[in-house]
Nucleic acid binder design. Structure first.
Ligand code: MN
Ligand code: MN
Ligand code: MN
Ligand code: MN
Lengths: 219, 219
DNA sequence: ATAAAAGTTTAGGTTTGTCTAAATTTTGTT
DNA sequence: AACAAAATTTAGACAAACCTAAACTTTTAT
């Protein structure tokens, strides 16, 4: 079917385009995939020939309907394996991404669907990212970046939008996990950082960079 | 570490050499890996440079200690995943091999060991093949090919040495599985086939080809 | 409106793993 | 021992996926 390299490009295009919303630049892809722009150009020509992307030279790239279907299937597998690793094999949430990057490329319809059943059709992965259904639908939950909360407001952590171990380990250190109860105590105007109380207990100050990666729902 | 192609060569050398007992020929490898002898020669030069095999041109190849360690780790992963697929995801024994061929190449020490624990340290895979331990030991069980049984003798099926779906589906059809009780009723001298009674119930005639792939223990 | 800067593509290579065809070595047979 | 057959290796190519350097477009700033 598709090579691992092709699948990784498609997944990257999907993510960088915000689920297909806008076009993606060659440099952005090179950056995300840790390759050179020249290699990206090569691959885009190939993906275009396979009708997985709409590609106009110098003007960026977008997924076709076919491409989007492929992307969602890979993301589904990635996130289901992450759930498996955490729930069944007791991995920590900062240990799963790299392994799932490999498992997502295993080809077997039967496998994905049996895994989904085995895990009881989970809606989200260990980082709170939604798991696409077999039909390529993504269940949406109303959520808000922590950076958008006002002083006094509260929220429950439902998602963190960065799966790099360094970031997740930082959250471990601070004491934030999915389900944590947060309250904004104060806003520091100087750099838009917030003073946050965690689980009505510890209080920390989070930078605007970190705040923009944490998502909450109404308590 | 090692590429998927390299791992597949090493595994094939291990299997064809009977666990390292004897040397393996270029043609035998080409056959097993479904490639051409010329490609095998190329790869053997590479594996030799990496000290994974002892290779003497025109005289065949053997695994080094390093090579054997690599082989056993891949086989361990392959068989553990097969157990997972059957026991946890309800795969049939003829559906697992192809998927395990892919999963065996996922690289993560943590993953293999957690999987082993999750499955309760199984000794054998769904075909009765022993699972190498973390230290590269292979638990041996005394077993005998069905073709070696005399008339009147009985045995319990403990292993089938062919994982191709066609063969396993044939056994399903005949009604033989791991644990089946077999008794030899008669030997047909003409072609060395045996008349076999299964679970004190159905009786079938098995060709010597099939008999040599089924292994039994004393009841 | 133009020129510099930034972004992107093309040209020409490299590595891995494969292939076919030709050359070489080993084995088996008279 | 000599030669034919079989097994194996080498030579020369190719596709995938990557690279660097050079050329080309687009954007931005004067
Ligand atoms: Mn991930
Ligand atoms: Mn995730
Ligand atoms: Mn198998
Ligand atoms: Mn097996």
């Amino acid at each position: 079917m598709h090579s691992t390299a092709e699948e990784n490009y498609i997944k990257a295009i999907y993510k960088l385009s915000g689920g297909g919303a806008h076009g993606v630049s060659t440099n952005a892809l090179a950056d995300a995939l840790d390759t050179k722009p020249a290699s990206v150009s090569d691959m885009l020509r190939k993906l275009s020939a396979k009708d997985l992307v709409h590609y106009v030279k110098y003007r960026g790239v977008q997924l076709t309907d076919d491409g989007r279907r492929v992307a969602l299937r890979i993301i589904r597998k990635h996130r289901l394996w992450e759930v498996f690793l955490v729930q069944k094999l007791n991995f920590a949430w900062d240990e799963v991404h790299e392994v799932a990057e490999q498992m997502e490329h295993v080809k077997s319809e039967l496998l994905v669907n049996r895994l989904d059943t085995f895990l009881n059709h989970p809606r989200v992965d260990p980082h709170g990212d939604p798991i696409p259904t077999e039909n390529g639908e993504i269940p949406q939950v109303e959520q808000k970046a922590l950076s958008a909360l006002e002083v006094e407001q509260t929220g429950i952590v439902c998602r963190v939008k960065d799966s790099q171990p360094a970031f997740l380990q930082y959250l471990n250190r601070v004491g934030i996990q999915i389900g944590s109860h947060l309250q904004v105590l104060d806003k520091i105007a100087y750099d838009n950082s917030l003073e946050i109380n965690i689980n009505r207990n510890k209080t920390v100050i989070l930078s605007s960079d970190v705040l923009s990666k944490i998502f909450v729902i109404k308590p």
